[in-house]
Design a protein around this nucleic acid. Structure first.
Length: 482
RNA sequence: GUCCCCAUCGUCUAGCUCGGUCCAGGACACCGCCCUUUCACGGCGGCGACGGGGGUUCGAAUCCCCCUGGGGACGCCA
């Protein structure tokens, strides 16, 4: 059996769309699972809507996801001569013909059909033209497009996902393969490229199903072998429509900034419209490659759920070592101005301990910063609901006293910290929690977080005591002002 | 209007190929309880689905038909 070759063929008219990303993932997994090749091809036949920036952005996103390609990127815009040859073949073999109808004329016909609630298909006006008519129009400089003459009879193929697919030729209109400016169109170019690039397996969204029939028509007309084709269910938004560019989740490139791990995104997206057919769902990339089988693709469309993707992300965060996470979040911390690069480098061990403490409760990487800023700086503010509850005159006294006791501790570690607090609580006859809550708020500015004594130990004696005393002053000022 | 596709918890899905083991399993979310200094994690439990109707059969989520619902495609876009 010859080598498996798959491809992803994004159009650079926008960022990497989540649907395209999923298609890329499936093609990549398929190729990697079978030891085949994965090829990147940029479909930029529509020059007006394509840009270099988008090409770069798409490549970056693909790389970020870890979807490395073996060949490419190939650019369709650079291959025009090639297409021209095949167009010529189509014409001379009588499988295509020139159409001189103008866009305006067609628009009128289309609108009329819609008004009458009737089916619209090109009426083959120009198929009826004689050789002389055609030559005359060409000589007169009339512009024309080239249409495939769709034969009657069935077009069929065996879809890798949906099984037997059939469509009647009479239901397919004579579609255009070449613009009146000579530039070939998508459905045609795809066929030529897939053939020239020896693509063996085409996996794409089922919004391409009808295109597949047209493309098979072209393969047949040119006498080219038809590759295997498979259509994947679409990814929907919460309104159950094909996810559009406007959706928040639409740009795969945003996931990185939002603190998602690429393997979590790949894992989650791979589970949309595909499943290993058992109860497992969290996979490493290698496991995914190993277990992937296109036979397990689903047929029905799937709704994208960012909440579940977060769950996948937190699971993958747990799989990472502290060092790996630290490396990933360091730039974010520096950029947010929470801590300096120098500080992070010189206190790397401390940084990793912080990661360890926060790891279990992080959904996205930015959680480490949002929920752990106080490990690097004293709190600038105190959570309001905690202030209301904890910051009163009585607790100021208690905090002051506890700070004094903590100052006398020779070992500022978990157990002595706990013991000292418990002891004081017993003396003033309150439960430990009564002291714990205001202390947490004073030191972290927050009402929730990791175990108090672990974080006190980590932040360290001097800083903890200073923060507690700062809070005491804050409370007293606040109380006076009330 | 035409053509194509799909149909299990709110969502992602297992089960459907080879009908009984399914008064339908898992996951996310949600709700309790436990653990506990908080939140979270973890553990335990709960809520929650075979769209409807006909067949076939001793027996259907599983097979067939119809209906309904949903989606996609009908561009000189990709």
């Amino acid at each position: 059996m010859s080598e498996i070759r798959t491809r992803i063929a994004p159009s650079p008219s926008g960022f990497l769309h989540v649907g395209t990303a999923r298609t890329a993932i499936i093609n990549w997994l398929y190729a990697r699972n079978k030891g085949g090749k994965f090829i990147l091809r940029i479909e930029d036949t529509d020059a007006d809507r394509s840009s270099k920036e988008m090409v770069d952005a798409i490549c970056e996103s693909l790389k970020w996801l870890g979807l490395d390609w073996d060949e490419g990127p190939y650019f369709q815009s650079e291959r025009s001569e090639l297409y021209q040859e095949y167009i010529e073949k189509l014409l001379t073999s009588g499988n295509a013909y020139r159409c001189f109808c103008t866009p305006d004329e067609l628009k009128v016909k289309r609108e009329e059909a819609r008004k009458n609630k009737t089916d619209y298909k090109y009426d083959r006006t120009c198929l009826k033209l004689s050789e002389e008519d055609i030559q005359k129009k060409i000589d007169a400089g009339e512009k024309y497009v080239i249409r495939v003459k769709v034969p009657e009879g069935e077009v069929r193929f065996d879809d890798m996902v949906y099984g037997k697919m059939v469509r009647q030729g009479k239901d397919i209109e004579d579609f255009v393969v070449c613009r009146n400016n000579g530039r070939p169109l998508y459905n045609f170019v795809v066929v030529i490229d897939d053939y020239e690039m020896r693509i063996t397996d085409i996996l794409r969204g089922n919004d391409h199903q009808t295109n597949s029939f047209k493309q098979i028509l072209i393969y047949n007309a040119l006498g080219l072998p038809v590759p295997r084709m498979g259509h994947l269910p679409l990814i929907f938004d919460e309104r159950k429509k094909k996810i559009s560019k406007r959706d928040k989740a639409a740009n795969a490139s945003d996931y990185a900034n939002e603190g998602f791990l690429p393997e979590a995104v790949v894992n989650y997206l791979s589970m949309l419209g595909w499943s290993p057919k058992d109860d497992r769902e969290i996979f490493t990339i290698d496991e995914l490659i190993d277990v992937f089988d296109i036979k397990n693709a689903n047929k029905s469309n799937a709704v994208f759920d960012v909440v579940k993707m977060k769950h996948f992300n937190s699971e993958h965060i747990k799989k990472k070592s502290n060092h790996e996470i630290a490396t990933m979040i360091a730039p974010m911390i520096i950029q947010a101005g929470v801590y300096s690069k120098y500080g992070l480098e010189t206190r790397w061990k401390y940084f990793m301990d912080v990661v360890e403490l926060l790891k279990d409760r992080a959904g996205v990487l930015s959680d480490f910063i949002e929920r752990g800023e106080y490990f690097f700086q004293a709190p600038h503010t105190y959570e309001e609901k905690g202030v209301k509850k904890q910051f009163n005159a009585e607790n100021a006294e208690r905090l002051e006293e506890l700070a004094n006791r903590y100052e006398k501790l020779s070992r500022f570690t978990h157990d002595p910290l706990y013991e000292a607090l418990k002891e004081m609580a017993a003396e003033i006859d309150v439960k430990a929690g009564i002291l714990i809550h205001p202390t947490r708020l004073a030191v972290t500015g927050m009402t929730t977080g990791p175990g108090l004594f672990e974080l006190l130990e980590l932040i360290g004696k001097e800083e903890v005591i200073s923060r507690m005393r700062t809070a005491v002053i804050y409370i007293r000022e606040k109380v006076i002002n009330e």
